[in-house]
Amino acid sequence: MIKILKKVCNLAKDSGHFIMDFYLHKERIKVYYKPDNTPVTNVDYKVNNIIKNSLFSINPHIPIISEEESYNTKLHYKCSRYWLVDPLDGTKEFLNNNGDFTVNISLIENGIPILGVIYAPFFKVLYYSLYNTAWKEEDNINREIQVSNSIIPLVVVSRSHFDEKINSFLKNLKDYTINKMGSSLKFCYIAEGKAQIYPRFGNTNTWDTAAGEAILIAAGGIVKTWKGDNLNYQLSSSFLNSGFCASVL
């Protein structure tokens, strides 16, 4: 599995370099809109193909589920293992030039994310995990990461989903600082001890959370729905989970 992890890390970085080439040449980006009115670009689709082809070469027998494609889950629902991919998490951030976008790749086994890789190409930072260990690579230095408590917790929230429910949640905290940011980097900030809480209300797609959850749990954190359940990564027709709270234990 370590060899597979290294290949996926390299794949995420290669995909990130491809994304940055478009980021630096905006005239090459084409924007479309999905039925829910969220943006998607030609970059999302191109990176999706790169990742799919590479994962297939790693193991042609493991199904690949990606945000940018449609699936008949009845063909795969008995699979105990599959790849779950978000080729460009934070498309809005990518288009808004703020750097908070990532490449997310995770391996799901029996409904649990056992491997997670997140690369933030703008910041040139890689987060990755396998089972119960998580790491961060920056400036060619790899180090193991762990969650960390704080007397005054840093709460990370989404720029795109800041609403009254978030405000109500924050009012129940005595002391806190807050950082609004995009993509799965919120999970990573908790995993490396920079932040302590990430509240999210409303439904989330499985590809938005799987890699981040794998990394955070491997670093000693926890992700639970507001009812106290685990997020569900068993293959289903909707690929949806309810809201959750990610935090240190």
Rank of each mutant, 00 (worst) to 15 (best):
S106Y: 00
F56T: 08
W207G: 00
R200Q: 14
M181L: 15
D208T: 03
I62Q: 08
H161K: 09
S247A: 14
A214R: 00
N203I: 00
K78R: 09
V125Y: 00
E144Y: 07
S238G: 14
K34M: 07
P63R: 13
T177A: 07
I190K: 08
I145S: 01
P87C: 00
N49T: 01
V156R: 02
I112F: 07
E109P: 07
K171G: 12
G90N: 02
I178A: 09
D21G: 04
Y23S: 11
T209C: 02
R143K: 06
R81F: 12
N72V: 02
V156N: 05
I29H: 09
I215F: 08
Y127A: 11
A246P: 12
K13F: 01
L231D: 03
N10I: 00
F122I: 11
T206G: 05
A219T: 07
H17F: 03
Y176W: 06
K136N: 08
H17T: 05
I197C: 01
S247Q: 14
G212A: 04
N97C: 09
S15E: 03
L126W: 04
N96Q: 10
S129L: 11
Y82K: 02
T206E: 13
H61Q: 10
V117P: 01
W135F: 15
Y32N: 12
S15L: 05
T41G: 12
A218G: 10
N59Q: 01
V147N: 06
E137C: 15
N53C: 15
L88H: 07
V223D: 15
H161G: 01
A219E: 04
F169I: 02
E69M: 08
D36N: 04
I190R: 11
W135M: 04
